[in-house]
């Protein structure tokens, strides 16, 4: 679909190899109970999970930290290609990133040693979101930012 090319370059790209079959990994992306078990940051749990995993439906998680603070996040399933990828919109409902809509694409790829899972978080082509949040920088930002961390002190001294 043309929609894919309309989205901005990835903001963020992460990949990891899992020693399981592609079908097994994809199942873990589709199954509501499984998603509830893993799709949250460290130190949080998933208190509510609605994950219909059908294109056009909405998903929603309520993540809770150790203080009981709730972080609801949700979005819509945009594209699902079995054992290939799932693409969804991603919007935090509250807190610092509230209302910022991004697109997350999780894709799986068979490898000799298992399955490579790649996450790409992308901006939207929407002008409003673009103005507000300036999407559209590339994956190599990850590499550059490592450099940035190492050169921080030098620049700080200059400024």
């Amino acid at each position: 679909m043309a929609e894919t090319s309309a989205v901005q370059p990835a903001l963020l790209r992460l990949a990891r190899l899992f020693p399981v079959s592609t079908d097994r990994l994809f199942q873990a992306l589709m199954n509501e109970a499984e998603v509830a078990a893993w799709l949250h940051p460290a130190g949080m749990t998933c208190a509510e999970c609605r994950w219909p995993a059908r294109v056009g439906t909405n998903w929603r998680l309520v993540l809770v930290n150790s203080d009981g603070r709730r972080f609801p996040v949700g979005g819509r399933f945009l594209e699902i290609v079995p054992s290939r990828l799932v693409r969804l919109t991603w919007i935090w409902e509250e807190h610092d990133y509230a209302g910022i809509e991004t697109i997350a694409t999780l894709s799986v790829e068979p490898k000799a040693e298992g399955t490579l899972l790649t996450l790409e978080q992308q901006g939207l082509p929407d002008e409003k979101a673009r103005r507000a949040h300036a999407q559209g920088f590339g994956a190599s930002l990850d590499n550059l930012s490592q450099h940035v961390r190492s050169t921080t002190s030098r620049e700080g001294a200059k400024a």
């Binding site: 963020l12 992460l14 990891r16 899992f18 020693p19 399981v20 097994r24 990994l25 873990a28 499984e34 078990a37 893993w38 799709l39 949250h40 940051p41 460290a42 899972l117 996450l119 978080q121 990850d142």
Partner: peptide, 15 residues
């Protein structure tokens, strides 16, 4: 980034 790194860690344990 942190969110997804943690989530991938969780997923590895889960699998």
């Amino acid at each position: 980034r942190q969110f997804w790194q943690d989530a991938f860690d969780n997923l590895a344990r889960h699998l």
